[in-house]
């Protein structure tokens, strides 16, 4: 019987290639050339940095960054799907102390009894919808991890109307006489102090809702009473509180934080 070979040991190990004898002068010349090229190549990152710094600013960011973020958005739209859902959790995982992280758009007083959701669409008369009308629609609940753009997250429990159901019920979003959707939804607080723009596919995602309850209770003022947006496919900044009006549009609606240097899309 032949002895068992240790084949791995016998595999030729790849060896660095040795050159024939080279003169000192040749070595020096090659070294200098390599370092000269290295120094020259070092100008590339430096120039790139300078170039970014002198870029005209577009809503607080260098123009080229806005362009790349736009590409990122298109890539994200490529894999976005209604089948991709934010993970949900058991009800008792939801926190009791839900974090409040901003009061923009909530600084003025509001008469909740007089409140109506104003819905606008090009070429139509504006609708005014009361909270009771919204509550008459099927209720949806979600317990998911709310994610702030700052980095923190919290498991929260919300209840309200599914946005896609709402749009269907009031026949919103599709251009008159066609199947095509307006590409954007805009929303703002009654005082206009806070406003967001959302791409329609994200608004129609099955987990997006117009919420009027938190932890089975009506919304508190600081959490956006009487009606707020809950949109798990976006960072918290898009989850507008105290919705005053919403509208479908062809143009990108203004967005509070996008005007302050943040990405417009901020999709999760």
């Amino acid at each position: 019987m032949a002895p068992v070979d240790d084949t791995e040991e016998k595999l030729p190990e790849k060896k660095p290639h040795r050159e024939e004898l080279t003169s000192e002068q040749q070595i020096r010349r090659r070294t200098l050339k390599a370092f000269a090229l290295f120094g020259l190549a070092g100008v590339i990152p430096f120039s790139l940095w300078k170039w970014i710094k002198i870029q005209p600013k577009e809503a607080g960011l260098p123009k080229v960054f806005r362009e790349v973020l736009k590409v990122n958005e298109e890539v994200a739209n490529g894999y976005f799907s209604n089948a991709n859902l934010a993970p949900t959790f058991p009800k008792d995982w939801a926190v009791k102390n839900v974090r409040v992280n901003g009061r923009d758009g909530l600084r003025s007083a509001i008469d909740k009894d007089a409140w109506r959701l104003k819905v606008e669409q090009p070429g139509r008369k504006a609708l005014l919808i009361s909270l009771d009308e919204l509550k008459a629609l099927p209720k949806q609940e979600i317990i998911y991890e709310f994610k702030c753009i700052e980095g923190w997250s919290q498991i929260q429990h919300w209840g309200g109307v599914n946005f896609a159901e709402f749009a269907k019920k009031y026949q919103l979003g599709q251009k008159d006489g066609s199947e095509a959707w307006y590409p954007y939804v805009g929303m703002k607080t009654p005082d206009g102090g806070y406003y967001v723009g959302i791409d329609t596919p994200s608004a129609l995602h099955p987990q997006t809702m117009l919420a009027y309850e938190m932890n089975d209770e009506p919304l508190t003022d600081l959490h956006g009473a009487p009606l707020r947006l809950i949109i798990p496919v976006k960072y918290g900044v898009k989850n507008l509180k105290r919705i005053g009006s919403l509208w479908f549009s062809d143009e990108r609606p203004r967005d509070f934080w996008a005007e302050r240097g943040y990405d417009y899309h901020v999709g999760l």
Partner: peptide
């Protein structure tokens, strides 16, 4: 970056907070 679109990956890496 995309914890909803790639929720499987997020779960695999221990959830959103663990991945961070």
């Amino acid at each position: 970056y995309k914890p909803t679109q790639f929720s499987g990956l997020t779960t695999l890496t221990g959830g959103y907070e663990n991945a961070r």
